[in-house]
Simulated assay, not measured.
Amino acid sequence: MRQGKTGIIQRFYQKGLARYWARSARAASTTELPALRKQRLRARKLRQHLNTLISISEGRLALPLVGSTAFFRPHGTDWYWRPALWREPLAQVGMSSAPNREMLGEEVTLFHDCRVSELTLRQLRNTREADLAPYGLRMDVFRFDGSFLSLVIDLPFEAVDGLKRNHLIRLDSIVELEKPLEIFARLNIKHGPNTEQIVRELPLNEEEIMVEFDLAYSKLNEKRVEKAWIDLIFEGPEMNQVTLRDVTFSRRPRAEF
């Protein structure tokens, strides 16, 4: 109740203040100079605070909305998803000397076999006009004495619920590289005792970095599908900085001819 009264009083005060400055502006051409000089000083101080508020608020409101799931989805999409790492702030935003099997949130895990880890990971806030994802992931790799480096993204149950061999699973990403390297995406689908795997190379030289996994060419047992995950595999990552501005997934039935 007290907060409600305070809010009402504040609204009345703000309306009264706005009316005061509106009247002062209308009367400025006839106000006596000593009074006008004082009003000008007060107005300049107020304008400084208002400009600061406007500048900060416009910057923050221009950022992608936290929690956003907005991204392009092909016609006929029956499931789509942006992992939480690119959607929500992590409790731990960064780590250095990242060990093998280190988790970033609940869906993304780092895998490598380095004896001495010189890997740094950091979640960052996306601020570019082209970004739809609120957050991105930056990975700095210095000396690399291992044989493999990958990020494993566990897909939610909805990704495999009702999954058929006529489905296409699409991965879209926005990737920035300090210097060229190869990134492969491997879709893994566990069905019974077997795991179906489909590998695609990300077309990093193209404007649209997208790959599709066509399950029609797999030996998927539709009745025994249990779970799925994606491996993002980085080839030759030494002395490089990789920024994944966005990673999204969608699923749709392939067109029938």
Results as ranks from 00 to 15, higher is better:
residue 66 V to I: 15
residue 89 P to R: 02
residue 48 Q to N: 07
residue 183 I to C: 08
residue 36 L to D: 00
residue 97 S to Q: 15
residue 85 L to E: 07
residue 239 M to D: 14
residue 205 N to D: 09
residue 235 E to R: 06
residue 70 A to H: 11
residue 207 E to H: 14
residue 75 H to V: 14
residue 157 F to A: 13
residue 226 E to K: 08
residue 120 T to S: 01
residue 32 E to T: 15
residue 159 A to L: 07
residue 45 K to G: 00
residue 251 R to T: 05
residue 142 F to C: 12
residue 47 R to Y: 09
residue 88 E to C: 03
residue 111 F to E: 08
residue 44 R to A: 14
residue 60 R to W: 13
residue 184 F to S: 12
residue 38 K to I: 07
residue 44 R to T: 13
residue 199 V to Y: 14
residue 201 E to G: 08
residue 129 E to G: 08
residue 204 L to T: 02
residue 66 V to K: 08
residue 132 L to T: 14
residue 108 V to M: 02
residue 50 L to Q: 10
residue 102 E to P: 05
residue 228 A to G: 01
residue 60 R to F: 14
residue 128 R to H: 12
residue 122 R to Y: 03
residue 161 D to L: 06
residue 170 R to S: 04
residue 154 D to H: 05
residue 8 I to C: 12
residue 169 I to N: 00
residue 164 K to S: 11
residue 66 V to A: 07
residue 106 E to L: 10
residue 139 M to H: 04
residue 33 L to M: 11
residue 183 I to Y: 10
residue 10 Q to V: 13
residue 194 N to P: 05
residue 101 R to N: 12
residue 1 M to T: 14
residue 155 L to D: 02
residue 80 Y to D: 15
residue 195 T to K: 01
residue 176 E to H: 07
residue 59 G to S: 03
residue 253 P to E: 15
residue 31 T to M: 09
residue 245 R to C: 05
residue 108 V to E: 05
residue 238 E to P: 04
residue 179 K to L: 00
residue 208 E to V: 08
residue 129 E to V: 12
residue 165 R to T: 07
residue 54 I to E: 12
residue 126 N to I: 05
residue 21 W to K: 03
residue 75 H to P: 10
residue 150 S to I: 02
residue 42 R to V: 00
residue 81 W to C: 04
residue 1 M to C: 10
residue 53 L to P: 01
residue 108 V to L: 02
residue 30 T to H: 06
residue 210 M to F: 10
residue 223 K to D: 06
residue 179 K to Q: 04
residue 51 N to A: 13
residue 74 P to C: 11
residue 200 R to M: 09
residue 112 H to T: 02
residue 84 A to R: 09
residue 162 G to I: 11
residue 70 A to W: 13
residue 140 D to F: 10
residue 98 A to P: 00
residue 157 F to T: 14
residue 16 G to W: 15
residue 178 E to F: 07
residue 193 P to V: 08
residue 153 I to S: 10
residue 244 L to F: 01
residue 31 T to N: 07
residue 188 N to D: 12
residue 35 A to K: 11
residue 197 Q to I: 15
residue 111 F to M: 04
residue 199 V to P: 06
residue 186 R to L: 09
residue 40 R to C: 08
residue 37 R to F: 01
residue 231 D to F: 08
residue 204 L to R: 01
residue 220 L to F: 02
residue 223 K to F: 11
residue 237 P to Q: 02
residue 159 A to Y: 07
residue 15 K to N: 13
residue 20 Y to S: 05
residue 219 K to V: 15
residue 72 F to A: 14
residue 136 G to R: 00
residue 86 W to G: 03
residue 63 L to P: 01
residue 54 I to V: 15
residue 220 L to A: 07
